[in-house]
């Protein structure tokens, strides 16, 4: 991709775990393996897939909150894992994260003013107290909160308000790129709509690039330009949102989309594709195509050979027998 803000190159994270008696047995969790994706400047890429498929791990790697087992993350062409401390520190201003759980991600002992002032103080040593308070007021108004919120503590606010505070904190340093990790998943429908609208507004207003991690596919069709579908540590399909919803190419994507409940009882008798079996463990990943234990289109080659990501135009998929 030409205007990629971020590209991952064979990005891989394998966690080592000790189990068994006395922790002598070592197991390897293939959380993310050989992922190559690009995120264009000012786009929203949604990362979807079921629990444990590696979405959060990929997001954390891209922000260098964890170190990879192998591979690179290029931010504006530069591999962030080769940056020294000082350069990484200044890059952190440009890359932020919003978490799922607004309850857990805000320090309960800190006032909202201090929570929002913290990144400002760390990165702008020369900002005066007054400037900081002014900036905090501005941030609160950007996310639709009133000034008095500053003097409160996190527990005094509702889930939706806390998520607005989390968003304000992520915006404090005018980042270019934000990872939203299940940022609306814990919220009620009516509050979720408020926060989604806010994120869309802010994206336009501040020219943000978003990586939107979610397991909720109905949210994706509203917020994202493109979708990356993950299964057991692999990106199996990537492409423009509308195209993928219209016509998925990877069998897993097809089943995933078909499983999403539709809020219209007249649609209940449509032919529903129900996937059998469970997601295999990321410790013992299936050979060949990782989806082969559940795939109805399976043939011999799927078990022996891993399908590589291939592209047709702007559609990417990793399957030997894509659904043209």
């Amino acid at each position: 991709m030409e205007n990629a803000l971020i590209s991952t190159k064979n990005l891989t994270k394998i966690f080592h775990l000790s189990t068994g008696p006395l922790g002598r047995k070592k197991v390897f969790v293939h959380a993310v393996e050989n992922v190559n994706i690009d995120i264009a400047s000012r786009e929203t890429l949604a990362l979807v897939g079921e629990s444990g498929c590696g979405k959060t791990t990929l997001g954390r790697l891209i922000l260098r909150l964890i170190e990879p087992t192998k591979g690179e993350v290029l931010f504006k062409g530069e591999n962030i894992f080769s940056l020294d401390r000082e350069r990484m520190r200044s890059l952190r201003r440009d890359m932020q994260i919003i978490f799922q759980d607004p309850y857990a991600s805000l320090d309960p002992r800190m006032r909202i003013l201090d929570i929002l002032a913290e990144p400002l103080k760390t990165h702008n040593k020369d900002m005066s107290k007054r400037e900081i308070v002014e900036r905090v007021k501005e941030l609160l108004s950007v996310v639709g909160l009133q000034e008095f919120v500053m003097s409160g503590f996190p527990h005094q606010f509702s889930g939706g308000q806390r998520q607005r505070i989390g968003i304000a904190r992520a915006l404090a340093l005018n980042p270019e790129f934000i990872v939203c990790d299940e940022a609306v998943s814990a919220l009620d429908v009516s509050i979720r709509a408020q926060i989604l609208n806010l994120l869309m507004d802010l994206k336009e207003r501040f020219n943000l690039t978003l990586l939107f991690i979610t397991h909720d596919l109905s949210v994706v069709s509203f917020i994202s330009d493109r979708i990356g579908v993950m299964y057991l540590g692999k990106c199996v399909e990537i492409g423009p949102t509308a195209d993928i919803f219209d016509h998925p190419l990877h069998p897993y994507t097809l089943f995933l989309l078909s499983a999403v409940p539709i809020p219209d009882p007249h649609a209940r008798d449509r032919a529903k594709l129900i996937l059998e079996g469970d997601i295999p463990s990321p410790v013992n990943v299936p050979s060949g195509c990782r989806f082969h234990t559940r795939c109805p289109y399976l043939r011999d080659v799927c078990v022996s050979e891993e399908p590589q990501m291939q592209y047709i135009g702007n559609r990417g998929f990793a399957c030997h027998f894509p659904l043209y």
Binding site: F222, D246, L257
Partner: peptide, 10 residues
């Protein structure tokens, strides 16, 4: 207020 999946034209 629920986004509809796959609705054409965001």
């Amino acid at each position: 207020s629920i986004p509809r999946i796959g609705k054409k034209g965001k």
